[in-house]
Write a protein that binds this DNA or RNA. Structure first.
Lengths: 191, 191
DNA sequence: ACCTGAACACCGTTCAAGT
DNA sequence: ACCTGAACACCGTTCAAGT
């Protein structure tokens, strides 16, 4: 708020004429930024799964550039035209893949949550090198764990921290898509 | 920091003797709290899937009580004994389900991230009623969306916001578990 | 060596007062 | 009606100075 106000050569109080609080500001800014997600070029090729992963990766990339936004997007979703467009595109692709309607509704939420959380996690770590300390501590703890008491941990070891962020993100999307295809919602029909 | 210092009848500076920053403090507190996740009672019945969902739900419940912790757990993971115990238990259950080692390593991460993100999201919304405004705005925007330009959105409508938090969480766990079972990691063997 | 008072450099939000 | 200066009530972190 204060930084934006300064940029606009005014006091922070003036912003509250246009916006109710920081969450609302973040949601509005994110919706604007979502213009960078090119939904048109999605039809560039590949099946619906690949197209889905492409849109979601593009969404993640936008958030990745703005760690603070990613963190608040987890709690305060935008509701502007770009976000609606994104939802529509994702729902269309899921329908194309034969996912039942109700399940697709919950599915987009899971997919976007995964994308947002991953962006918040990685972007924050990149921006604040201090945050890297915590996972370094975890790596050390796993390496130092006793094979007697923690056999699985000892067996897997560094495997837990392997792979690039890109690869893990794409794998996660595919896990979710496959899972959504195979998992009925609780209750009878799952229309 | 300041609140904890006050509780301890000292100044905030004193805490920096024991802890490097807030992230480290949060990670340590969360590890302590993880003692409430009863890994023993997991063997209470059901197959490995149900047991997995039970542990993860218990983990989510702990975070749910502490919104602030949940938010920072997304970025700064604990590395204490309770967290290692939790990882070990989850890995053991995945192995029992026949998930290949390397895939299980990435899988626990996805499962815990989903649990943590869901807790951060819902707990924050519950704690700060202001945050509810944003999803209210989204509900209104979806309802007001035009069926011509956004056919899927119009068709699904309130379905997007249906279900209890509990049901969506459990469904998400099952989606991930099923997805993990069916999705190989990039690269050749996926040992 | 271990601890801490006081200060530094920030936040978001409110509200009375101005134009 | 629209805008805003100034204040309120907070933060995390540092560091010189104390015991």
């Amino acid at each position: 708020m204060r930084r934006l106000a300064q940029e606009l050569d005014t006091g922070p109080a003036s912003l509250y004429v246009y916006v109710r609080n920081t969450a609302e500001l973040h949601a509005a800014v994110l919706d604007e930024l979502l213009g960078e997600v090119d939904l048109g070029s999605i039809r560039g090729g590949g099946d619906w799964r690949q197209q889905l992963v492409r849109v979601l990766s593009s969404y993640t990339a936008v958030l990745f550039e703005h760690p603070g936004l990613a963190r608040s997007a987890l709690v305060a979703r935008p509701s502007g035209p770009r976000y609606l467009e994104l939802l529509e595109a994702l729902l269309a692709l899921l329908a194309q893949g034969g996912v039942p309607d109700g399940r697709a509704a919950w599915g987009v939420d899971a997919l976007l949550q995964f994308a947002t959380a991953t962006a918040a996690e990685q972007a924050t770590r990149d921006a604040a090198p201090d945050a890297q300390d915590e996972i370094d501590a975890l790596v050390a703890a796993v390496r130092g764990s006793c094979a007697q008491t923690h056999p699985r941990l000892a067996a897997l070891g560094d495997e837990l921290f392997s792979g690039t962020g890109q690869d893990r993100l794409a794998w996660g999307f595919h896990v979710l898509i496959n899972g959504i295809l195979q998992t009925a919602r609780p209750g009878a029909t799952d229309r």
